[in-house]
Computed example of a mutant assay.
Amino acid sequence: MKSHQPTIGGLLRSLRARNQWTLKQMSEHAGIPLSTLSKIEHDRLSLTYDKLLQLSQRLNLSMSELFAETHAPATRPVTARRSIGRMRDAARVTDKNYDAFFLCTELRRKRMTPSVIQIRARSLKEFGPLVRSQGEEFVFVLEGVVELHTEFYDVAVLQTGEGSYIDANMSHAYVLGRNCESARVLAVSASDDAGLLATLMAHQEEA
């Protein structure tokens, strides 16, 4: 049975179709070489989380808009939206620090971006420079132990069943706790700014 899990290539094809761009036009807007973009759209090549954030910045889209698949006319009035988040339907994005599964990707222009994230970095040194974005961020530890590093507070150790709520414009990082081999968290980023995750990428690029 064919999987309905969205792929990065499929999402980019949908985005290009919504804007009625040719592959060449998409390449120029995105800053991605034509041959590379073609491989991505045909799922022969993927993008890291950092590169996706860079792409969203170039296209002036939030990450949720970049991941959105359009199934209804854009003029349809929205009065009561609902989306069921299932891991099998999540859009997966991986980089050196996180393995993120974005949920409810079919909803566009949402104020919250929910995801389930596998923590990869074992130390702050391995993580690299702290990151920051606009809005607020809630992280709840589903399994394992996580260290929260911030620029204004001492390190906070979060056990399974514990969470943190922070102003995300404060530089921060999540890494594995001491002697912890694996940790998974539920993360929710919220902001009125449509460019929430694109802003995060801008600061990462500056680091």
Rank of each mutant, 00 (worst) to 15 (best):
I84C: 09
T105D: 11
G85E: 12
R120K: 12
L59S: 13
L130F: 07
N60G: 01
Q57T: 13
R132Y: 07
G144Y: 10
S38V: 00
F127A: 14
P114G: 09
E41P: 00
F101C: 15
P114L: 10
V78S: 09
R58K: 12
D89I: 01
L59P: 00
M63Q: 07
D43N: 11
K51S: 11
K125D: 15
S115I: 03
R44D: 13
A80E: 12
R82P: 02
A80G: 03
G85I: 05
P114V: 05
G85T: 04
E126W: 07
S62G: 15
V116H: 05
Y49S: 14
Q57E: 14
R120C: 13
Y49A: 13
R88E: 13
E147D: 11
L55Q: 11
V78E: 15
G85S: 10
R44F: 08
S38C: 05
L142H: 03
D95L: 01
Q118G: 14
G135W: 02
L45W: 04
P73S: 06
G135S: 03
E147M: 04
F67Y: 08
V78F: 00
Q57S: 12
F101S: 14
H42P: 00
R122V: 08
R111E: 07
A91L: 13
R109T: 01
D50E: 15
S38F: 01
A90I: 00
D43S: 08
E147R: 11
H42S: 11
L61R: 14
M112F: 09
H149E: 08
R76M: 12
E147I: 00
L142M: 10
R109E: 12
T105P: 01
D95C: 04
L124E: 15
A74F: 07
A80Y: 03
Q118S: 11
T105G: 12
A100P: 00
D99I: 02
C104K: 04
V116M: 12
D43P: 02
T79N: 03
H42L: 10
R120Q: 15
H71D: 11
D89N: 11
T48P: 02
T150Q: 06
P77Y: 04
F67R: 03
V141N: 07
T79S: 04
K125E: 15
S56D: 09
L148T: 02
R88H: 07
T75C: 02
H71I: 03
L103D: 14
T105I: 02
F140A: 08
E143H: 08
M112Q: 07
H71C: 09
L130E: 13
T94F: 00
R76V: 00
G144Q: 09
P73Y: 05
F102C: 02
L130H: 09
E137Q: 10
S38R: 04
D95Y: 02
R132E: 12
P114C: 07
K125W: 03
F102D: 05
S83V: 08
P114M: 09
F67I: 02
S123M: 15
E151R: 02
S46P: 00
P114F: 10
S62K: 03
N97R: 01
A72G: 01
S46G: 09
E151S: 13
C104E: 14
R58G: 09
E69N: 00
L66K: 06
E137A: 08
D43W: 04
T79Y: 06
A100L: 07
I117S: 13
L53R: 05
I40R: 06
K96M: 10
R109N: 13
S64D: 12
